[in-house]
Amino acid sequence: HGNAKTDDELEMAVKAGVGTIVIDNFDDIDRLERIVKGEQAVLVRIIPGVLPDTHLANATGQDDSKFGLSISDARVAIERLKASKKLRLDGLHLHLGSQIMSTQPFIQSIEAIASLGEFSVYDLGGGLGVRYTYKDSPPSIEEYLDALIATARKYLPSTAKILIEPGRSMVADAAVTLYRVVTIKRSLRTFVAIDGGMADNLEVSLYGQRFEATVANRVGGGELYSLVGRHCESGDILIDGVRLQDPKVGDIIAVPVTGAYCLTMANNYNGARRPPVVFCLDGLARAVVRRETYEDLLSRDLN
């Protein structure tokens, strides 16, 4: 995968025996033709020309996407790969984006690629949305799969292998992020400042993603507050207008549904140390990733 795979990365993939490499552009073909010695299975990533109803930064299947090839360019790539003696074209790949709250875009994308011919493999990507807030209403897993299967049966070969890439929808609700209240400031609005923020949750700043929160031992209700981070950005607002029940300095604030892209995009902005990860099950807890230290932050510096 990737829209800018380097020679080193492709060489590593081929050497490791990666089963399938996704062709994103014509340069991928050029590089693989040079690197591959035997035979390498590939898929071609298609831009289906479908813009789902999600944040633009989360959309990857629209006509001006940086990922994949347009339908017309894909036809050229397909013919070139069919003639290749090193690259075996197994099928097509697409990915519409992330946090998609309707099945219709998935249906449209399958319809769009059906005109490119019949293949043995179709990777339909992922993108199914999850319920971050009380108002969110994404399709169920069953509704999502029913839509994909029905459309694939209508437009794709009956013998084809259908792949999907569930990500956010599998892991988002597996995690809760815990913060401690550092200070409370009352002015034109009341700020509840915590010991984290955009260094451990970039989804708000990048995608405008809305979350819910609660005081851990006083769940639900309360007045409206601005839950803000500790970083030197006015935009470091984790949740603006969230109801918290009488928050106090030292309280633990729980923010659920943070399992998908929070830890993976965590960073060291302002010298922030990335948080630990603790697995919990049946009343037992164990740390699986330790908290970063200041020594960790300095470990890559050279004298």
Results as ranks from 00 to 15, higher is better:
H1I: 08
N3F: 14
N3I: 08
E9C: 04
E11W: 00
V18E: 11
G19R: 00
I29T: 03
L32P: 07
K37P: 01
G38N: 14
L51A: 15
L51Q: 14
T54N: 12
L56Q: 12
L56W: 08
A57D: 11
T60M: 06
T60S: 09
G61D: 02
S65Y: 02
K66W: 03
F67S: 08
L69A: 12
L69N: 07
S72W: 04
D73T: 09
A77Y: 00
A77C: 04
R80V: 03
L81Q: 10
K85Y: 01
K86Q: 02
D90E: 14
G91H: 03
H93N: 07
L94T: 08
G97V: 02
I100E: 06
I100F: 07
Q104F: 13
Q104C: 05
Q108V: 01
S137H: 15
S137W: 13
P138R: 02
P139Q: 12
E142G: 01
L145M: 07
D146I: 04
D146W: 04
R153L: 06
L156Q: 06
A160T: 13
L163V: 15
I164E: 09
A175R: 05
T177K: 02
R180D: 10
V181H: 08
T183Q: 14
T183S: 15
R189N: 07
G197K: 00
D200I: 02
E203I: 00
Q209T: 15
R210W: 11
G221Y: 01
L224I: 05
S226H: 14
V228Y: 11
V228L: 06
D236E: 03
D236Y: 00
L238E: 06
V242F: 01
D251K: 06
D251A: 10
P256N: 04
P256M: 06
V257K: 00
T258E: 10
T264S: 14
A266F: 01
N267R: 07
N268P: 03
Y269E: 15
N270S: 13
R274I: 15
V277N: 01
G283R: 05
G283H: 05
L284R: 15
V288Y: 13
R290I: 08
R291G: 10
E292N: 07
R300W: 12
N303F: 14
